[in-house]
Design a protein around this nucleic acid. Structure first.
Lengths: 241, 241
DNA sequence: TGTATTTTAATAGTAATACTATCATAAATA
DNA sequence: TATTTATGATAGTATTACTATTAAAATACA
């Protein structure tokens, strides 16, 4: 297991960074320290000045790696999805059942392995992803970033899960919607259960969270054709009751 | 309809504002203009200076209504949920079927009425909600804000839909999770279909989006007990295949 | 109608943020 | 050893996110 882990290296698109932080100790320090600060103070309060101070480096040095803190967040997010993809492939390598593969994927999304990878605290990165990752794309510049392929890693992960869905139910019409609903749903429920519990149900641990979304996926996939209506036919059915 | 509309007034918790913007023309102007600017430049680039310039007023005047731009966003979000609740109640007033009520709720979430309420462009507010509303709670200060009851309106709306779910299927264990999954899901799909289409399926209009989530809700609710497993039993089932 | 009170505008100012630029030095590499 | 590259140190600018003060305008109220 450890051997495989050490062979992993996130493949992040240039364009996110000015200089790849994965290629130097200072760069790697930017990543690990930024995770800690963002986790502690939140992305809004996170500044390159705070990061530089913590790292005992300078703002100027950080700016040589990233244009701004948003690109750094995008890097962390991309790295996470690259890691998630790698880890999932490892875990599912010698399985054939797409159901089981999907279950593993959902379990991993709901409670990731809390390992430490070269000083990078994956559990903490997960915390950051849960609270901050949607801010990487819910922005005005999203189209421009997307044109440059900067959401590649997230899209790739979604695409892999969508493929799994189609293996389970060939011809299912909404694999991508289902997958993104599950992913973002898991993140939201994780956040809600900790901070806004009345928006969830009971203290949900990673396991039961995974159960809920796996069941949801299966229910959606295995829905009888009779259950699928358009708004108008649904309304007719209901009015006829 | 117009009469009813004019009787609506959002009930927003004090604590979000310093002085209720709904009680003065300047305050109302802050709301309508901020929606336009946030829609145009995004919440990150939105500043009270830009707002003051557009309104032909001053920063100091705006600061008398809101502590900061985040509280203003929270106000817009609360106002939206208050409006959504009011509108839904109106639409469902003389219906009895909880299924139909839920369908109406989901349809409204997926494509809100594009009316203009006292100069407030609801369609534009909806755009802002889709892209920005999660930033109102995905922050480090969430617990403190929540202790002061500042997420009341969103919680209330979620609670109403959860009640509907329980009317449809008494005893269903996860009404809140299902509801927030649907709400945030709708917003995400709306955003994705416009900006990251590979994360959705086909060009989804409001109607088909509503269909997808209504079907999802029904599938989750009407799931046979046999379909509900814990992770361990799921794994056993799968391994046995 | 006049006076008191509240609301807004105008202006100024401060600390922090988000950068850019320059130069020196250390480390790596050729 | 020479040369490139990476980092550090320092400085500086425009913008942001406010706070404070005073004056004018609008409103309430007696």
């Amino acid at each position: 297991m450890h051997l495989e882990l050490s062979t992993f290296s996130g493949s992040i698109k240039g364009g996110i960074f000015l200089k790849d932080p994965a290629t130097s100790t200072l760069g790697w320090s930017i990543l690990t320290n930024s995770i800690e600060i963002i986790d502690e103070v939140g992305f809004e309060q996170f500044t390159f000045r705070k990061l530089a101070t913590k790292m005992q480096s300078t703002e100027a040095s950080i700016y040589r790696y990233f244009e701004n803190k948003h690109k750094l967040l995008l890097y962390l997010s991309s790295w996470y999805w690259s890691w998630a993809e790698y880890n999932l492939a490892l875990r599912n390598a010698n399985l054939s059942s797409p159901q089981q593969k999907l279950l593993h994927a959902i379990e991993q999304l709901a409670s990731p392995t809390k390992v430490n990878y070269n000083g990078m605290d994956i559990g903490r990165l997960y915390q950051v992803i849960v609270r901050e990752s949607s801010k990487a794309y819910l922005i005005k510049e999203v189209d421009q970033l997307n044109r440059n392929g900067l959401f590649y890693n997230y899209k790739k992960f979604v695409s892999i899960l969508s493929q799994l869905i189609l293996e389970i139910k060939s011809g299912y019409a909404y694999p991508h919607m289902l997958v993104t609903t599950i992913i973002e749903g898991i993140h939201h429920q994780r956040f809600f259960s900790e901070h806004l519990p009345s928006l969830t149900d009971m203290p949900l641990e990673g396991e039961s969270l995974a159960d809920f979304y796996y069941s949801l996926a299966m229910a959606a996939i295995n829905q009888k054709t009779d259950d699928l209506h358009t708004s108008s036919t649904i309304l007719q059915t209901l009015t006829a009751e």
